[in-house]
Amino acid sequence: MEALGSKGSIIIMWDKRSWKGEMVESGNQMITCKLSGINTAVYASCDRNERSELWEELGTMKSFCEEPWVVCGDFNTTRFPSEKTNHTKLSGAMKDFSRCINELELLDPPLFGGSYTWRGGSNHRNASRIDKFMHSFPWDELFNQIRESSLPSLGSDHNPILLSCGDEVFNRSYFKFEKWWLNVEGFKSKVQDWWNSFNVTGRADFKLTTKLSLLKVKLKEWSKENKGNWRARKDQLLEQIGS
């Protein structure tokens, strides 16, 4: 599937073993398609005013979207100065984009495999992350592993990006808080540090839900890293009691 723009195109490919839906075209800027949810492909204008119209159109689309939602493509703008070389200030266009994402209640996952998706100028000195996959919370619940990766560029000034979603989850297990975590020295302060490090803006309920989701990921990673040490300590104590 290809969404055409005035100066380029976006190509979206799904694993044919998983494709179950149909393509629906909406103008020459976006394409939506069904795949256990809704996917919207975007090719945004370089003009800030025209992008503002696109952000409004996406907001209208969200009001009709009751299924898990993924928005992807070339947005022709970045969210933060760190996503663009030689840029240190938060611009109005960046604020517009972040405000749109927060209002749409989309998650912007980190990019693996590189910091930027576009390069241009003399010797490719200019670079930015203007290509993204973003998804709604229900999409996060639909799949057990979501990862956005940058792939090698093949004759283009853009790097292809890949959204890997792992296996579809039909019997998703509940998140479990382990009691032994509380007995690990420094655990509570670590949770506090994680919580304070999450920079999330938007409505209060959206901020809380997003930060809880991010905290859940951190806890799972930390638990996996420390479980072996805790089990070894447990076995050591049992051995002392039995001797």
Rank of each mutant, 00 (worst) to 15 (best):
G114I: 04
G114E: 02
G114V: 02
S115V: 07
T117R: 03
T117F: 08
W118S: 09
W118Y: 11
R119I: 08
R119Y: 13
R119E: 15
G120A: 13
G120E: 04
G121T: 00
S122W: 05
N123L: 03
N123E: 11
N123I: 03
H124P: 00
N126Q: 05
A127W: 01
S128R: 14
S128W: 00
S128K: 13
S128G: 07
R129P: 01
I130N: 02
I130W: 03
K132G: 00
K132V: 09
F133T: 04
M134I: 12
M134F: 07
H135L: 13
H135S: 04
H135T: 06
H135N: 10
H135K: 06
S136V: 03
S136I: 04
P138M: 02
W139Y: 09
L142K: 15
N144T: 14
N144F: 04
N144A: 14
Q145N: 06
Q145D: 15
I146N: 15
R147M: 09
E148W: 01
S150Y: 05
P152V: 01
P152N: 04
P152A: 02
L154F: 10
G155N: 05
S156A: 12
S156N: 12
H158G: 09
H158T: 10
N159T: 08
P160I: 00
I161D: 06
L163C: 11
L163N: 05
L163M: 11
G166M: 12
G166L: 09
G166F: 11
D167V: 14
D167M: 11
D167F: 10
D167W: 03
E168T: 06
E168A: 05
V169S: 15
V169D: 08
V169K: 14
V169W: 02
F170A: 13
F170L: 13
N171M: 08
N171Q: 09
N171Y: 10
N171A: 07
R172G: 11
R172Q: 15
S173H: 07
S173F: 04
Y174K: 12
Y174D: 13
Y174M: 07
F175P: 03
K176H: 14
K176L: 06
F177P: 00
K179D: 07
W180F: 08
W180L: 04
W180Q: 03
W181I: 03
W181G: 13
W181K: 12
L182F: 06
V184Q: 15
E185K: 13
E185H: 09
E185T: 10
E185C: 02
G186W: 05
F187K: 02
F187P: 00
F187V: 01
K188R: 15
K190V: 08
Q192P: 02
D193A: 12
D193C: 11
D193G: 06
W194D: 12
W194G: 14
W195M: 11
W195E: 07
W195L: 10
W195V: 06
W195H: 04
N196D: 15
N196C: 11
N196G: 04
S197G: 06
S197Y: 00
S197N: 14
F198V: 01
V200R: 00
R203C: 10
A204W: 03
D205Y: 02
F206R: 07
F206T: 00
F206V: 00
K207A: 03
K207M: 14
K207P: 03
L208H: 03
T209W: 06
K211F: 07
K211C: 14
